[in-house]
Simulated scan of single mutants.
Amino acid sequence: MPPTSRTVRIGSAHGLHARPAKMFAQAAKDAGIPVTVSKGSGAPVNAASILGVIALGVEQGDYVTLTADGDGAEDTLDTLAELLTTDHDAE
Rank of each mutant, 00 (worst) to 15 (best):
D71C: 01
V8Y: 03
R19N: 06
A18S: 14
G70N: 07
L16N: 02
G32F: 02
A73K: 03
T85H: 06
G57T: 07
V8L: 10
P44T: 08
G57W: 08
M1R: 13
S12Q: 04
S5P: 00
A48D: 02
G57V: 06
T86P: 01
P2S: 15
E59P: 00
P3L: 11
V37K: 02
T86D: 01
L83R: 07
A25Y: 01
A28W: 05
G11H: 06
L84R: 06
S38V: 03
L16K: 04
Y63G: 03
T85C: 08
P34T: 09
V37T: 05
P2R: 14
L77K: 08
A73C: 11
I33S: 02
G70C: 12
L56P: 02
D30N: 14
M1Y: 01
D87M: 11
G52H: 08
S41R: 09
T85P: 00
R6W: 02
T85Q: 15
L77N: 09
N46A: 14
G11W: 02
L83A: 13
V58T: 13
E59V: 00
L51Q: 07
V64W: 06
G61H: 04
S38D: 02
K39H: 09
T86S: 06
H17I: 07
G70T: 08
S38N: 05
A81W: 09
A28R: 07
A68Y: 05
T76A: 15
E91I: 09
A43M: 03
A21S: 13
D30M: 07
V35H: 02
A68M: 12
D71M: 04
P20F: 06
A28F: 04
A31Y: 04
P20M: 13
A73M: 12
S5H: 05
E59T: 06
S38T: 10
T67H: 01
H88P: 00
G15K: 09
A13S: 14
G57A: 10
P44V: 06
A28T: 07
P20A: 08
A81N: 08
G52M: 05
L16C: 06
G32M: 10
K39M: 12
P3K: 14
A43N: 05
G11Q: 08
